[in-house]
């Protein structure tokens, strides 16, 4: 019983992390119609940058949360720069854009390897969250519960941003119909930069938040990217609700699969994706932003 409860909490925690990662991926896909194959890299870079602020190698140490926020901002800037300097040049050529993101992901992976070495770096749990929560017979790590809370806060914030703000309205218009968005006078190019930066920043933040659970290691990018891909194929591109539900589903399948069928965990993970592709190609929530 305790085992199942723990597994459930872990699944939801992982789902929360995936939501932080994939909501940006989904928005970028919805708006620009390309899968950003650097999204895993953004996650990894966020984590590496964050650990550097914690480690003191720069001559100062930051608190965990400050490190996460600053790492996220830096990754957001990197994302925006990539959109402006590279993807913008290839506007309208989706295939070329995808290939460029693929190329950049290799460059980033190698740069990280040069910068931070090949050994995994573990990330200390932030102060005050190292404890445990007791719920009946089960004991949960407090940090994992906190991650769920963070994901929920971000989900609500993103929802409010999309629903209530001008920026959100423009994003929704762009996802619905890019041509129409252009016609009604939205500066689509600037919107692309903003959304790309936002998505990258979210991924970078997720990387640092995930640090205490996953640690940081070379290849983390390649581990996370397919998960974001599966979430978005499941949930449908450009749909916040889809990312949310998709993340939770993938979180459960991934954790239960690891625990019950460790050898076939990956296979089990992609199975629902295949089912969705066959039965409902637009994704569970495709075609709606919220």
């Amino acid at each position: 019983m305790t085992f199942w409860l723990l597994l459930t909490v872990n699944s939801i925690t992982f789902g929360g992390l995936l939501f932080l990662l994939s909501s940006g991926f989904s928005l970028i896909f919805g708006l620009m119609r390309i899968p950003n194959l650097t999204h895993g890299s953004m996650f990894m870079v966020g984590a590496y940058l964050g650990t550097t602020f914690l480690s003191g190698t720069l001559g100062f140490t930051l608190d965990f949360w400050a490190a996460a926020v600053i790492a996220a901002l830096e990754v957001a800037i990197l994302g925006a720069l990539m959109e402006r300097l590279l993807l913008r040049r290839l506007a309208g050529q989706q295939l070329a854009q995808v290939l460029v993101t693929l190329g950049v992901s290799f460059m980033v992976a190698d740069l990280c390897l040069m910068g931070w070495g090949g050994d995994p770096i573990s990330v200390a749990t932030p102060a005050g969250l190292g404890g445990f929560v007791r719920a009946g017979p089960a004991v949960f790590p407090l940090y994992r519960v906190a991650v769920i809370g963070i994901a929920v806060v971000f989900a609500v914030a993103l929802w409010l941003m999309l629903e209530r703000t001008r920026l959100g309205a423009m994003i929704r218009a762009g996802v619905d119909d890019p041509q129409m968005a252009r016609v009604v006078g939205i500066r689509v190019s600037r919107l692309f930069t903003i959304v790309f930066g936002l998505g990258a920043g979210l991924a970078g933040f997720a990387g640092m938040i995930g640090g205490p659970i996953l640690s940081v290691y070379p290849g983390l990018d390649q581990d996370m990217l397919p998960l974001a891909l599966v979430v978005v194929i499941l949930g449908g591109t450009g749909s916040l609700l889809g990312s949310f539900v998709g993340s939770i589903i993938v979180g459960f399948i991934y954790n239960f699969g690891q625990a019950l069928l460790p050898e076939l965990a990956y296979f089990v993970l992609f199975l629902p994706m295949v089912l969705v592709l066959v039965l409902r190609p637009q994704g569970l929530f495709g075609g709606q932003v919220l």
Binding site: L86, A96, L99, V100, V104, M107, D110, L111
Partner: peptide
């Protein structure tokens, strides 16, 4: 890998 990625980007662009 860095070079692979760079060649990729340069050729595509």
């Amino acid at each position: 890998n860095f070079l692979l990625g760079a060649i990729f980007v340069l050729i595509v662009v």
